[in-house]
Amino acid sequence: MGTNIKQTHRFILYITTLIMVIFPLVESILQELSLQINKQLFFFLSKLVIIYVLFLFLKKKKITLSSIRLKKVHIKYILLGILMGIIVHMLSVIFGRIQYYLLTGEWLSAEKIVSTLMESSKNISFYSIIMIGFSVAISEEILFRGILLKEYQRMNIKPAIILSALIFSIYHMTVGNLVFAFVMGISFALVTIYTESIIPAIFFHFLVNEILRILMHFPEKVTETYFKVMVSPITTITGLILFLSILTFLFIKVIKNNHFQSEKVKFFDRYIILLFLMYVIFLTIK
């Protein structure tokens, strides 16, 4: 495996350590010192730190923004990213309901979803959702689709998509999110390669993460009516068909328009093995 990929893996490991160890430690120290912490602000600032570290990495490696696909793109591709985000939101509702059913033995109703959403999103302003959502989407898309996917794609596109999605899913560190994040990683990769920009994936990523909390700011009756539509089997089936259709279209286009090189991508080196071990340890102690 090339030196650049090893360095990228090492960098992902550093970022993961920053998120899993250093930031929680700083937060706990501040709490021990009896300092009042706004968790949303702390999370936003931590993402800004990560973005700053990412740009330091790019500067050190003399990597331009255009080479990691952080560049202007036609509005139709941004709309594609927004469309994908909305469709995935339709599917995420049923995904969340299935998880809840497996844990409790009962299905989440629209009323229950709304009450849970309101409870979990107390004191979160609309503007903080926008700032936090885009800071997360920007930092992760630069890291995984801008840097990592680009390095893998130099060798072979199919393993590049799969491996970048696999590492993306491991990075998210929870069993419930593992499969979902893997599928999302593939989706983000296909959108990025097809549009030749990470901008559509940033909008896609933002909506997947934040659309539920954005809905919290609608009147409760409107939100409840909306979720009654979302929990409908027809909505779920429609969303699944649309998602698979667009994903298949993107996959065919990407495969046809990208040439393969003969060198194969090795699936793990010591840095990714270490990252995976950290994931297992995290699940064990949680």
Rank of each mutant, 00 (worst) to 15 (best):
M131S: 15
L247F: 04
I86E: 05
F282D: 10
F227H: 04
I22A: 09
Y152L: 12
L250I: 01
G96H: 12
I75W: 13
K47L: 12
I138E: 02
I162H: 06
N177I: 05
I237G: 09
L242I: 12
I130C: 06
I87D: 01
L244C: 10
K112G: 10
I113W: 07
L79R: 00
M216D: 09
T236C: 14
F182K: 03
F188I: 07
L277G: 03
A189T: 05
V222I: 14
E140G: 04
I132E: 00
G85N: 02
S245G: 05
S109C: 03
K6Q: 15
K253I: 05
L79Y: 13
I63N: 03
F11N: 06
Q261S: 10
K60Q: 12
R270K: 12
I51R: 11
G2T: 15
I132H: 00
I198F: 10
I12A: 02
Q153A: 14
Y101M: 12
V191N: 07
F276H: 06
A110Y: 02
K59W: 07
I214N: 04
A201Q: 04
L166S: 09
I234P: 06
K62M: 11
F126Y: 04
I167K: 01
I199R: 00
G105Q: 08
I94K: 11
V208G: 00
Y101I: 02
V254E: 06
I132T: 11
I285C: 07
E196A: 07
F251C: 12
I129L: 09
L178T: 09
L35P: 05
Y226A: 15
H9P: 06
I19A: 10
I161K: 00
I281R: 00
Y279K: 11
G2S: 13
T174Q: 12
T17H: 05
V88D: 03
L41D: 13
L277Y: 02
F243V: 02
I211A: 09
I22N: 04
I255C: 08
P219R: 11
S169N: 07
I170S: 00
S232Q: 09
I12Y: 01
I202H: 04
I241N: 06
F57V: 03
I129N: 07
Y171F: 13
L48W: 00
L103Y: 10
I113P: 03
P200F: 00
L13K: 09
I161C: 04
Y101E: 08
L18D: 02
D269S: 11
L190H: 08
V179T: 13
T104G: 04
V114C: 07
G185F: 02
G105I: 14
T3S: 15
L277V: 15
S135R: 05
E151Q: 07
S135K: 05
I87P: 00
L190F: 02
L65Q: 08
G96C: 07
L178V: 13
H74E: 09
F168L: 03
N123C: 06
L163Y: 10
I199Y: 09
K286W: 13
Y100F: 10
S139H: 08
I211V: 13
F11M: 08
